[in-house]
Write a protein that binds this DNA or RNA. Structure first.
Length: 439
RNA sequence: GCGCCCAUCGUCUAUCGGUUAGGACACAAGAUUUUCAUUCUUGGAAGAGGAGUUCGACUCUCCUUGGGCGUGCCA
């Protein structure tokens, strides 16, 4: 029998990375085994499960390309089944009513009073609990609404779920759920409990941590494939040294028995590195799809000042770690009103002799008519040789003068990208501002 | 308090009794007679502690310590 797995989030308006990681593992398991991946929206909290919250959830699934194989099931449509199950348990004597705290009758499920409750967790191994360490629990509230445990189990039964892959925080519930399955005359599914993802401090995520929601990564310019790849590697590894892996490779390699059972910290720096790798490998057209709207949003033209878009992006694309770096990392190619980085100015333009060096470089460049990488390189080298200074004495002030920053493409590539006239005018503008103290 | 789970470099991880404990991120140094966000090289960096089993333990068992989860009307 082919596995049937599900992702069963309750929509709250944000999708947490721990949650989506569970979705990813379910999805990978289904795709690896040729099984079925289901999406069940546990929308019984009417306060939070707004249409927008559900929209956010579905968007998120789509963004990460987590496609599901059957129509979405909304838990609110299943309430009758939940209550019918409760009636059956009541009739079978597996549940009883009680009026606790005068709130009216609620339905309580009877846990076994002797023996063990045990199961074999696909990632954690043998799990066992003495019946005496378990307690009866509420399955229908006094207001008549089914509690999570009941709804969850009944839905899994009706959807024919064979494997429950979810977060570690559910291990305790599993003992309850297994008994519920059995009491309802159903075979309990296989369970696989994934380790938690914790914040950079190694602590559980709290509201204050931020940057823990999928939407935030999307906004910051992380690619879905990179986030997907990164998240898979939290609590799972292929066993060889591969890290950057395509969907196909991940699907082929993914097995539950290679999941770890200890919590993993979320390392943003590694995600950012991985994102940069993905960006560098993107087809140019896809890169432009990300980049152009950001130019629009920044009020910049889509075409660089001096044309040569191709050459510019050849330089910029491999240096983009996340799209929110753009266009900040190359504004100077799109507007004359490029900002000067304070540190760059003080370090490269206000140092000893920096202004003189800048002027000397300008004079040298003015002699260059055929403006190429080779000719500008030769000109600056000749100047350095003539004055006996390090090439860097000229390179650094020139770079900051024409771009405002200390990083970017190789200087001579940059000069050609900007064009002769623009370079010369920026150099003299910058020199003037330095002389007049307005920089 | 009680129950369950977890424990390898700073971080993510490999190792399924015998390895100089490997890789990646990050960091540091160097190279690319110019930047670094590219590329390359090099470096530092780990089995929480204690018993036991064994010829031999990161690996198996137990204890301690530390952390996490749960503990009748959240999911």
């Amino acid at each position: 029998m082919k596995p049937r797995v599900r992702f069963a989030p309750s929509p709250t308006g944000n999708v947490h990375i721990g949650n989506i990681r569970a979705a990813i593992f379910n999805w990978l398991y289904a795709r690896h085994t040729g099984g079925t991946f289901l999406l069940r929206v546990e929308d019984t909290d009417l306060e939070r499960s707004t249409p927008e919250a559900i929209r956010t959830l579905l968007d998120c699934m789509e963004w990460l390309k987590l496609d599901y194989d059957e129509p979405v099931v909304y838990q609110t449509t299943q309430v009758k089944k939940h209550l019918a199950a409760a009636e059956k348990l009541l009739a079978d004597g597996r549940a009883y009513k009680e009026n606790k705290g005068g709130k009216g009758d609620c339905v309580i499920f009877r846990m076994p009073k002797d023996g063990d409750v045990a199961y074999r967790d696909l990632v954690k191994g043998e799990m066992r609990k003495h019946a005496t360490d378990t307690q009866d629990f509420v399955i229908v509230r006094s207001d008549g609404s089914p509690v999570f445990h009941l709804a969850n189990v009944v839905d899994d039964i009706t959807q024919g779920v064979t494997h429950v892959i979810r977060g570690d925080d559910h291990v305790e519930n599993t003992f309850k759920h297994i008994e519920l399955f059995k009491a309802l005359g159903a075979e309990p599914p296989q369970y696989a409990h994934l380790p938690m993802i914790v914040n950079h401090m190694g602590k559980p995520y709290s509201k204050r941590d931020g940057a823990a929601f999928v939407g935030e990564f999307r906004e910051q310019g992380y690619l879905p494939d990179a986030l997907f790849n990164f998240l898979v590697l939290l609590g799972w590894a292929p066993g060889d040294d591969r890290e950057i892996m395509s969907r196909e490779e991940l699907i082929a390699a993914f097995t539950l028995d290679r999941c770890k059972s200890s919590a993993a910290r979320f390392d943003l720096k590694k995600l950012t590195w991985m994102n940069g790798e993905y960006i560098a490998r993107m087809p140019r057209a896809a890169y432009l799809d990300e980049i152009l709207p950001r130019l629009d949003a920044a009020g910049l033209p889509r075409e660089p000042l001096n044309g040569m878009a191709q050459e510019l992006f050849d330089q910029i694309q491999p240096r983009t770690k996340k799209f929110s770096d753009f266009p900040r990392n190359c504004v100077y190619c799109f507007t004359e009103a490029y900002p000067f980085d304070d540190k760059a100015v003080s370090k490269r333009l206000k140092g000893d002799g920096a202004l003189d060096n800048l002027l000397a470089a300008q004079a040298a460049f003015e002699q260059v008519q055929d403006w190429t990488i080779d000719s500008t390189t030769a000109a600056l080298h000749a100047l350095a040789e003539q004055t006996g200074k390090n090439l860097g004495a000229y390179v650094h002030p020139v770079r900051v003068a024409v771009s405002g920053v200390m990083e970017g493409p190789g200087l001579f590539e940059l000069l050609v990208l900007l064009g002769r006239e623009r370079v010369l005018s920026r150099m003299s503008q910058t020199a003037l501002r330095l002389q007049s103290g307005t920089l």
